[in-house]
Amino acid sequence: MNNIFTNAMARNTIYGSVLVILLFFVLTFGTVRTLPERVHHENITPQVVLGKAVWEQNHCVGCHTLLGEGSYYAPELGNVYQRIKHQTNETHAGPFIKAWIEIMPTDAPMRRQMPNFNLSKTELNALLAFLKWFSEINAANWPPNIEG
């Protein structure tokens, strides 16, 4: 077997990865081109951008997931806007989510606790704008149901 499959042949198999890298770039090009439409880029307002900063600077992803990415300690928030609308039967989820964030923590014994982040009114509204924009992204029909 040593003579059939030489070291030089083994080394040459590595060049096969060039094709894979090229394909990766092509698929990336396609992704970057279609993303503006899929995420409704025109809806990324300055308020949404601020909301994203609030999201990141309070480390929401340390407990929650956003389209399944993050921590698995607390509920998915990519579709939280629809979920709250669904649960409360209201046309806007905003007031409920804002109140929810503001009354944290619950301090219920043994229960998982969410800290109070002392967000200003502007920050809260921005965070909501961000979550609302995010909930409208075309994510290939994920999550499977409203519970995330």
Binding site: A10, V20, L23, F24, G30
Partner: peptide, 28 residues
């Protein structure tokens, strides 16, 4: 050599399994 080739040829496009449900195109 064989391991290196196998890692590169499977791992690079394996990235695609993170692109199913995050708003990226369905071809992933």
């Amino acid at each position: 050599y064989v391991i290196t080739a196998a890692v590169l040829m499977t791992g690079i496009l394996g990235t695609g399994h993170h692109y199913y449900w995050i708003g990226t195109p369905e071809y992933w």
